[in-house]
């Protein structure tokens, strides 16, 4: 069996690029606060969604629509419409996190397949089985706090398909349960679908050093000429107990390509690539490489090595929580 590659598409062009590069499945969202990558210039209007899904289907690929923020009180119809529009556009599934939206989708759109977003942070088999029993969830995107052994244990205890992140941005905190960004900027992943927004980033040149601020807080400083990583809060540089450093996580990104055989053995159905904000060239390259890797895995051939090193953030990659010592 070939593991399914689930690829990001921030734009219709990226969707086509991902499908042509060999994506089994593409995920995307509407251009509003209903999805957790609500960045300027990204995402799909209703027509683009319908056309994108038709294009993917004509190439044998599936499309999942992420409606994975938490609906705003008083404005739930916006989220309800997104679910209805995804269904009428022909989406193969919706990716949801909000309890209220899961209940709504289960009762109003019973024929529409439901996946549980990573934003729901379902980190154990009991919780996953609860979502399956109660809302008919068929697949869960696992939070990035679990080791490979724990993922295997979960799969042994559930019929729900599991999808895990293998490449791209890495949340260090349990997803959907983090308010660091709104504390500093007023914009949150749960409410607005954004984290550490570019609108609140400020670079300062002081005495030969380049400082990066988010919401007025200086969380990076590099010597001029050094690459300056984007100031994402949990990967910032802080002072604590007389030590200065990346107290939460280094400015690394996730690359679990070497773990593909272990994840396969652990019973994982699908491998997810983060990065709806990335260019279509990036998406195409990552997809091609991961497709080659899962095809090799399925054929019992050795995996191609080090294929994605140049694409990881700041040229540093981690296997994250998949290795138990990360904790």
């Amino acid at each position: 069996m070939v593991m399914e590659i689930v690829c990001p598409a921030g734009t219709p062009a990226s969707l086509r690029a991902a499908v042509k590069a060999g994506a089994h499945t593409v995920y995307c969202g509407f251009a509003d606060e209903t999805n957790a990558r609500n960045f300027p210039g990204l995402n799909f209007d209703r027509t683009e969604m319908r056309d994108g899904i038709a294009f993917a289907h004509s190439h044998g690929a599936k499309v999942l629509v992420a409606i994975n923020t938490f609906a705003r009180a008083g404005s739930e119809p916006l989220w309800h419409r997104a679910i209805a529009n995804a269904e009428s556009a022909g989406a193969d599934a919706v990716i949801l996190a909000d309890l209220g939206l899961l209940a709504h989708a289960a009762s109003h759109h019973p024929g529409l397949r439901r996946h549980l977003s990573v934003q729901a942070a379902a980190a154990n088999a009991d919780m996953i089985n609860f979502y399956a029993r109660t809302f008919g969830v068929k697949r869960v995107v696992l939070p990035r706090v679990l080791s490979v052994a724990e993922i295997a244990a979960i799969n042994a205890e559930t019929e729900v398909e599991t999808e895990v992140f293998v490449f791209g941005g890495l949340c260090v905190m349990a997803e959907g349960r983090c308010s660091l960004s709104s504390y500093a900027t007023g914009q949150s992943p749960n409410m607005q679908g954004v984290c550490s927004p570019a609108s609140h980033v400020d670079y300062h040149d002081d005495a030969g050093a380049l400082s990066a601020k988010l919401g007025g807080y200086t969380i990076h400083r590099v010597t001029k000429g050094e690459p300056a990583p984007y100031p994402t809060l949990c990967k910032g540089c802080f002072k604590a107990d007389q030590s200065t450093g990346h107290q939460f996580e280094d400015p690394v990104s996730l690359n679990a390509e070497k773990l593909i055989p272990q994840l396969f053995k652990a019973g994982v159905t699908a491998l997810k690539i983060e990065g709806r904000q990335r260019s279509r060239a990036y998406v195409a390259q990552v997809v091609r490489n991961f497709r080659a890797a899962v095809d090799a895995q399925a054929a019992g051939l050795p995996l191609p090595e080090g294929m994605l090193a140049s694409l990881t953030e700041g040229q540093a990659a981690t296997a994250g929580a998949y290795k138990k010592t990360w904790r």
């Binding site: 706090v145 679990l146 905190m173 949990c234 939460f248």
Partner: peptide
Amino acid sequence: LAISGRCYHARLHGRT
């Protein structure tokens, strides 16, 4: 503000 699988206190002391 956040909860994680990783312990930051332990990390600060070079432990897991």
